[in-house]
Amino acid sequence: MQRVNMIMAESPGLITICLLGYLLSAECTVFLDHENANKILNRPKRYNSGKLEEFVQGNLERECMEEKCSFEEAREVFENTERTTEFWKQYVDGDQCESNPCLNGGSCKDDINSYECWCPFGFEGKNCELDVTCNIKNGRCEQFCKNSADNKVVCSCTEGYRLAENQKSCEPAVPFPCGRVSVSQTSKLTRAETVFPDVDYVNSTEAETILDNITQSTQSFNDFTRVVGGEDAKPGQFPWQVVLNGKVDAFCGGSIVNEKWIVTAAHCVETGVKITVVAGEHNIEETEHTEQKRNVIRIIPHHNYNAAINKYNHDIALLELDEPLVLNSYVTPICIADKEYTNIFLKFGSGYVSGWGRVFHKGRSALVLQYLRVPLVDRATCLRSTKFTIYNNMFCAGFHEGGRDSCQGDSGGPHVTEVEGTSFLTGIISWGEECAMKGKYGIYTKVSRYVNWIKEKTKLT
């Protein structure tokens, strides 16, 4: 034993070699072989497995989906700052455009905790909710729209109204504003409101030439003092309507412009014939205590009207009353817009006519005020429907199939267009061939041609 100890002390290297040989010859039971080890760690190889990531292109799944990435790591994937920024906006807080917040056709661009709407022409605001041009839906104005110097929408209202708090709607500024039905039992019968379409306001006024200088022999019209197929109006439903009495009662109609003036057809009036105007009328054979009678003290036909040349060209006249009318729910003026808007309103496509005229061709006159909704007829169809001249200051309205029309005794009465609950004068009943005849239409004086003249002559002093 002493000898062994001496050998170990003198030859430590020998001992180490012996131990190493023993270990190498022993069977290893701690580690699995290569094949079995792979069965336990069965993990798919990654895209760049075996390579240094710093030297390969980034992978979106590896960089940002398996674990949260930084902007720089995302930049490695896209290799483009702009594309990385677009991805980053949604990656950080989701897609803010998912709810489609942009209105009126706006395009949404996502941002971090926010979004941006790219608005089409005519709109602005956070969600493109603000109209900035009158060309689109009248700028959301209830009545009139004008573009300011910086191309912003400025709404306005006709006389007797003021802008509401929203700067879009119009509200009454006087007790009985024009064009409004205020009798409670008839307010439910107000005709369907007309909503502004998209309009090209630059070209809204037709490029028409008034044929002022045409000389033409007097034409022989049949029954051209021209509501057939209409309905009984309720008291106060058309408070701007008046009836004219002269040699015979209810020979023509008219509309209240203001307390002192009536507008009617020029062919209705004769110099030297006494005319009485009755406002607030409903049943011409009954006294309903809503009527107001006034005498006409002055007749002003349009300066281009000449019955000797043509009885229905420039067929418009103004009547001055001896005493002002007292405005109330049964006696209310009709609204008159400017030339541009009167023309736009007419193009809405349908209007209402009213009167006490004959209820059928050569038949009896109506006792109760009649009204009828009539569609506008395109000019080409209008011209083809008659052998008589249709001037540019006239328009056609009615039904091709016949059966409904204005008729004798309705002449001078109103053709009105309702705009968001307020009625505007767009025409004056003038003439036609018979009444409600198939293929024939009622012919009306186009008020847009005469609004400046009306307003100039009827100013209240």
Rank of each mutant, 00 (worst) to 15 (best):
G351M: 02
R43Q: 14
L24C: 10
G421E: 05
I300T: 04
Y450S: 01
F31P: 15
T458A: 05
E76T: 14
H267D: 03
D111T: 06
L367T: 13
E288Q: 07
E285D: 13
L318D: 00
T225H: 10
C396Y: 01
L23R: 02
G160N: 06
S11Q: 06
S406E: 15
K247M: 10
L20T: 03
L23H: 03
R43P: 13
G94P: 10
K274G: 11
Q143C: 00
E72T: 07
W356I: 09
D93L: 08
K126D: 09
L23S: 02
G363D: 08
N283Y: 08
C178K: 01
V278Q: 04
N283Q: 09
D212F: 11
W88S: 15
S204A: 05
K51G: 13
R373C: 03
G13S: 14
R358A: 09
A164V: 05
T386V: 07
L346D: 02
F123A: 03
E418N: 11
L189R: 11
N213C: 04
A266D: 00
N328F: 00
E208I: 13
G122R: 04
M437I: 11
Q90C: 04
T458Y: 02
N304G: 08
P12V: 13
G272N: 11
G398L: 03
K51M: 07
K362F: 05
R384W: 04
G160A: 02
N38W: 06
H302R: 02
S25D: 05
V248C: 05
S350F: 12
S411F: 15
N452K: 10
G412V: 06
L189P: 10
F388H: 14
G409N: 13
D315E: 02
N295L: 07
L23Q: 02
V374S: 03
E320T: 01
C252F: 01
A250N: 12
S114F: 04
D111C: 04
N222H: 05
T84L: 06
N38F: 07
Q96V: 09
G160D: 08
A233P: 06
N310L: 03
S365I: 10
E27F: 03
T417S: 09
R180S: 05
L321Y: 01
K311S: 06
V153E: 05
K247H: 10
K45H: 08
N258S: 06
V30W: 12
R364E: 13
I316N: 00
A207E: 11
C108V: 01
P301A: 09
A397S: 04
T194S: 13
R379G: 05
V451C: 07
N328C: 03
K247F: 08
L163C: 02
E401V: 07
N328G: 07
T209C: 06
T81I: 08
M6L: 15
K152S: 13
T386L: 07
T381E: 08
R162C: 04
E418Q: 12
S220D: 14
P239C: 01
G13L: 14
T16P: 06
E142G: 08
K68T: 15
S184R: 09
E76L: 08
K459I: 11
G254N: 00
D150I: 11
A26F: 05
E259Y: 04
I454Y: 00
Q219N: 08
N245T: 10
G160L: 02
F121V: 05
C155W: 01
G236H: 10
G403H: 15
S107H: 08
V278C: 05
R162V: 11
R83A: 14
